[in-house]
């Protein structure tokens, strides 16, 4: 059978869709639990929906970003694999890197004519083994982290714990942001500064416009991307 036909076979579509199904079911289960708890904590439904709506709107831009790599992956590995691997753990660039690295194990370049069924199998193994890493660590450490945080909360001043968590989160995003800025083109700096300024402006000036607040990160992001592209 020709490789392209294997890559897009109904068998592989079904095999790849199981992961999508697991992700979907997991989110439905956690969502149900969260709404049950919200009721117990007397959190108003309308407020929960507002939070959910805002999170969903915010995610549209970042969810669209990997589409270009999706198309590249469809061309190299077929639609089912590209669909599965960009819907699960492993950033788009990470998946692309693993495809290249693992087919290189048998000395084949993914975009060459030499990319055959064997190289395809190597690529699939590469992505599976790489994604396993995050899932395994999360599986083993999440309960431990949860236990550790509640123990720390009992042992230390809750106010310090709040500071500690804030410091860790701010530090993490300082790392992510500076990674996008140091040694990068001026367009990156424009995008970050403009988007940060717009976010700050909407938060402060339109404080009481609830609907606008829900859209604020989406607006800030688009403004940063578009203006930075326009002026650089």
């Amino acid at each position: 059978m020709e490789l392209k036909m294997v890559m897009n076979s109904s068998g592989l579509w079904i095999a790849s869709s199981i992961m999508i199904l697991v992700i979907l079911v997991q989110s439905i289960l956690f969502l149900r639990e969260a709404f049950k708890t919200a009721e117990k904590l007397n959190m108003p439904r309308e407020r929960c929906y507002a939070g959910m709506r805002s999170a969903m709107i915010t995610s549209i831009g970042p969810a669209f970003a990997p589409v270009i790599i999706l198309l590249a992956l469809i061309a190299v590995l077929g639609a089912p694999t590209a669909w599965m691997r960009l819907s699960d753990i492993g950033a788009a660039r990470t998946e692309l890197a693993m495809v290249t690295l693992s087919s290189k194990v048998i000395g084949v370049d993914p975009q060459s004519a030499a990319f055959n069924l064997k190289a395809f199998a190597y690529s699939l193994w590469g992505m599976a083994l790489n994604n396993l890493g995050w899932m395994l660590v999360a599986l083993l450490f999440t309960p431990k982290m949860t236990g550790m945080v509640s123990k720390l909360n009992q042992k230390y001043d809750p106010k310090w714990m709040k500071y500690l968590m804030a410091g860790a989160t701010v530090g993490l995003f300082a790392f992510l942001l500076s990674g996008q800025l140091i040694g990068a083109k001026s367009a990156n700096w424009y995008a970050a500064v403009i988007s940060a300024a717009v976010m700050f402006g909407i938060s402060k000036i339109f404080k009481n416009q609830q609907k606008l607040q829900e859209l604020s990160l989406g607006i800030a992001m688009l403004a940063g991307m578009m203006l930075a592209t326009a002026i650089s």
Partner: peptide, 30 residues
């Protein structure tokens, strides 16, 4: 954003609930 628009603080039970609701929403989107 989910915590911002609802005003529930991170690290509180309410903040955890709203962040879970938000994250599951993004899973449906992506």
């Amino acid at each position: 954003m989910a915590q911002k628009v609802t005003g529930y603080e991170p690290g509180t039970p309410e903040g955890d609930v709203i962040s879970t609701i938000g994250i599951t929403g993004t899973v449906f989107v992506s």
